[in-house]
């Protein structure tokens, strides 16, 4: 367990009444009122009603966990594993995008400028224009299917980046 997580636990134990959900809403279990006779009549300061939500915490009020930046973004961005992930992703997405944009716009261009040619009957009464339009559906499905397969590799690569980051941070 890292120092930050330990600090968080200490903080949580000491200031039970200040802890709240991430989005600033009150905690799910509000500490129950102690029975009348043993109730401490000192005014309560810092209950969830009079503390600003997390986003508004002044710097000195933040827990160590909130204060620590999630990561050194520039360093992650420079990691070879991350650079490889981005390069692969950009290569696939740009190639796929060029492909479907060209394939898609071939339809309105051919239908708009060469309506006679596109009206040629191919299978029985069905013309080229309709078949080409229909093929767009299968193109889209196929490309989506391919992307899901490829993206599973991206997921693996991004897990590697995060794992490497954890090792560097000492297993936090």
């Amino acid at each position: 367990m890292g120092a930050a997580a330990r600090l968080r636990i200490v903080y949580t134990t000491v200031h039970r009444d200040r802890v709240m959900n991430r989005d600033g809403s009150p905690p799910d279990q509000v500490p129950s009122e102690p029975p009348e006779e043993e109730r401490d009549l000192t005014p309560v300061v810092g209950g969830w009603t009079d503390v600003a939500p997390l986003a508004a915490h002044p710097a000195h009020e933040r827990t160590a966990d909130e204060d620590a930046p999630l990561a050194d973004w520039d360093r992650v961005a420079a990691m070879p594993a991350f650079r490889r992930l981005i390069a692969r992703k950009v290569r696939f997405v740009s190639a796929a995008t060029v492909f479907y944009v060209v394939y898609y716009f071939a339809l309105p261009v051919s239908v708009g400028y060469f309506p006679r040619f596109m009206d040629r009957r191919v299978i029985g009464p069905v013309n080229l224009a309709y078949l080409f339009a229909l093929s767009q559906f299968f193109m889209a499905w196929l490309l989506a299917f391919v992307y899901v397969r490829v993206a599973a590799r991206f997921d693996g690569m991004s897990r590697e980046v995060l794992a490497e980051l954890d090792v560097q941070r000492g297993g936090r």
């Binding site: 995008t97 309709y130 339009a133 989506a144 992307y147």
Partner: peptide, 21 residues
């Protein structure tokens, strides 16, 4: 007729942009 079907095609292919980008 056919020109109406052009909308149908665009409405699906559009999701590739959503998916990729």
């Amino acid at each position: 007729g056919y020109d109406g079907f052009m909308y149908s095609v665009g409405w699906l292919v559009a999701y590739l942009t959503v998916l990729f980008v």
